[in-house]
Design a protein around this nucleic acid. Sequence first.
DNA 1: TAAGGTAGAGAACGAGCGTTCTCCACGGCA
DNA 2: TGCCGTGGAGAACGCTCGTTCTCTACCTTA
Lengths: 185, 185
Amino acid sequence: MTTDTKARERVLEAADRLFYAKSAHAVGMDELRAEAGVSLKKLYSLFDGKDALVEEVLRRREEAITAATMKYVLRASTPEEQVLAVFDWMADSSGTTDFRGCAFINSYAELGPSSERVTAVVRHQKSGVRGAIAALVAATGRPEWVADAIFLLFEGAMTNTAITVSSEPARQAQTAARFLLEKTA
Amino acid sequence: MTTDTKARERVLEAADRLFYAKSAHAVGMDELRAEAGVSLKKLYSLFDGKDALVEEVLRRREEAITAATMKYVLRASTPEEQVLAVFDWMADSSGTTDFRGCAFINSYAELGPSSERVTAVVRHQKSGVRGAIAALVAATGRPEWVADAIFLLFEGAMTNTAITVSSEPARQAQTAARFLLEKTA
DNA sequence: TAAGGTAGAGAACGAGCGTTCTCCACGGCA
DNA sequence: TGCCGTGGAGAACGCTCGTTCTCTACCTTA
């Protein structure tokens, strides 16, 4: 049904926004119901409870973030600039006041110990990001350890842009990544 | 009273261990009471509720981590090796199976949105680590942006050693930091 | 020994949660 | 028009949690 698909999307959008902003355990199903504009009955007919909803939100966000970052990457012309573009995405994203860092790291911190499935989704996203950066770096002809370093700079900058509420860490990471690319040319 | 001091320390030690391992909201006050071997009455006579306990645990952990890391740093002979020693601490720490990454990032993810005080403690720890690394790097004569980069490598490696359950990220970050120091000599 | 105070064990309380159930209004169809 | 099924609103349920209260045993002291 189209109405079901739309309601589903409204729930996922609201859940993504609320879980990310307030952490999952701080968002009740009733608050989510109100935000999505559906009844509790429909909510539970669309999803198998809160745990399943959290997992689906994370999987959906993984796709959305990948797509958003790729927009920045593909806009760049040289392979080196493509690598550095991921930090432009981060700097722009952290400009919004509701930036809270990496949703996967956050979910791992909150739910990882109690949910093997959340842990699996988080590991999947991390290996995906690492692989994507590795591919971009490989296209520049640099060795793999440079990709490892840039991935870790990316991860460190994600958490610290959130904590410091500033895009500075994103720019600092970009500066370091540029240096690594230059000195390994 | 000595008995109060000892009970206090037992509670803090148990709280630190349990909160870190399972996240704060997943640990009940009764579980904590059992683990610390005190009565609920004593627990509430020693601390002003769970929120205050979480904050005190974080402050205590900040001191403990700083001291533990400094042991590694002071063991090294040259300024450059002192900088790199922080990654030895991380690699060794992540060897324990109960390593869960940075307790401050984890707490920020879980409690930051709902607790301004937790956020303040986390910011304090992050600026402390950043300042400590900056001081070590300054002692080597390198520019400050190198310190920024090494701090972000450190942060990224902390989360990813936990998620991947491996000390590889710590070593990768160390390799990158060594490269940065060499090329800015 | 008797009294009083202290501390532990754990019951009790109130709130909030995830989830299910009840009730009713409404719309399609014979 | 009368019936049935669908879906929404929100009450209800069972559970867990943080916090407080009650009761009792024990230790101290006059």
